Simulated assay, not measured.
Amino acid sequence: MTTMGDVARLAGVSASTVSHVLNGTRKVDAATRQRVEAAIAETGYRRNVAARSLAGGRSHTVGLSISALTNPYFGSLVHAVEQALSDAGYVLIVGDSHDAAEPERRVTDSLLDRQVDGMIVAPAAGSEHSTLPGIARTGTPLVLIDRMLDVDCDQVGPENAASAQMLTEHLLDRGHRRIAVVRGIPGISSTTERFDGYVAALASRGIAVDPTLVLEGRSSTDDAEREVRALMASANRPTALVSMNNAMTIGTLKAVQHLGLSIPDDVAFVCYDDFEWSDLFSPRLTAAGQDVQTIGATAAELLLRRIRREDGPPQRIRVPTTFHHRRSCGCA
């Protein structure tokens, strides 16, 4: 491996001069700088940024544990976090927790082993018992993103319950009474909150929850398609559907199409999560859209404050969704 000494010998200068050229810590005359830069190019020398950072007590890296990186929502969330951290001079290291406790623990342990300056976690089910205590014991600054838990740290996520209630009430206002819900992974806070919103909407009209209309989509396109196809093929199918995330929305639409049914003529449809390409669907989808950019940027800023040792009580920030009123609900 090429060293700074190799560069210095080739350029005919001291190692400290090479260091000054690389780090801009002292003015170096143009001719000397040119020789050093030519030597760096010839030898292919690379600074050991990690060692230099750790010597100063910081790695300038942040770890992010998140699930389902193939999901467009989470991909956009990662992009928003990375953009905000990059602007502050930090590199983001991402690991996929697969929404399960053991993979999540392996991911977070690996990130901690890399001496990250802080952690952002979209917690899996049971994370408050299996993963988060280990992070807390290290004293590493921590922010939860997307999913809120009853733990003592900064958190930021979307408004779930009120948004799901609003979507369901919109269908109720259209006269629907048999409204099926496709809900996500059990034990995930966002799943619970969105289902609570659905239940609250029905209760506001004196309607009891019908267990046959509660479909376990498990945040999976395939599971949602299978569940919706079985229900919609039955004799007593619902008149409306509400899907609680974008992966399940795709599965729901595939099921309806497979059965030869039409939205909204045969079944009205609304969904939580808006797509960048929602306008390409026919009919266009009525949806509650998350402000992914704000969620990601807020999580990054909360973490940077903790890395800078700024005091203050933990913050719990809910970012409102936006109601996109289109045609799939049956409105003109």
Rank of each mutant, 00 (worst) to 15 (best):
D223R: 03
K27E: 12
I317Q: 09
S189H: 03
E82W: 08
R105N: 12
S190A: 01
D274K: 05
E104P: 15
N160I: 01
T32A: 13
H129C: 15
S59M: 05
V94K: 02
L132G: 07
I120L: 13
R326W: 09
D273M: 03
M232K: 03
A287D: 01
D29M: 14
A38M: 12
D146N: 07
P103W: 06
I317A: 12
V18G: 07
V228D: 01
R47G: 09
R316D: 06
D291W: 06
R205G: 08
Q165C: 05
L171H: 05
H79K: 10
L69T: 12
E102L: 09
T25K: 15
R284D: 07
V78F: 05
V209N: 01
V49G: 11
A208R: 05
M244R: 02
N23A: 15
P313K: 10
N236W: 15
A50F: 11
P283I: 15
A55G: 10
A224Y: 00
R177H: 09
A8Y: 06
E169M: 07
F195P: 02
V116P: 12
T294Y: 05
V256W: 01
L253Y: 06
V292G: 10
G289Q: 13
P264W: 04
R52Y: 14
R308H: 14
G57M: 12
P158C: 04
A235I: 08
V13F: 10
V18P: 08
G75Y: 04
R229T: 08
I263M: 13
C331A: 08
G260T: 10
A11N: 11
T249E: 05
L215R: 02
E301I: 09
G217E: 00
A300F: 14
L64V: 07
I145N: 06
V151P: 09
E193Q: 03
Q293E: 08
I263A: 14
I145P: 11
T131R: 05
D152W: 09
V91A: 14
D29T: 12
V91C: 14
R178W: 11
A164E: 01
Q155I: 10
F269E: 00
P133M: 07
R326V: 11
A50E: 04
A161V: 00
I120D: 08
L304K: 05
I93E: 10
G197M: 01
R105C: 13
V270C: 04
G126F: 10
L142D: 05
F281L: 09
D117V: 10
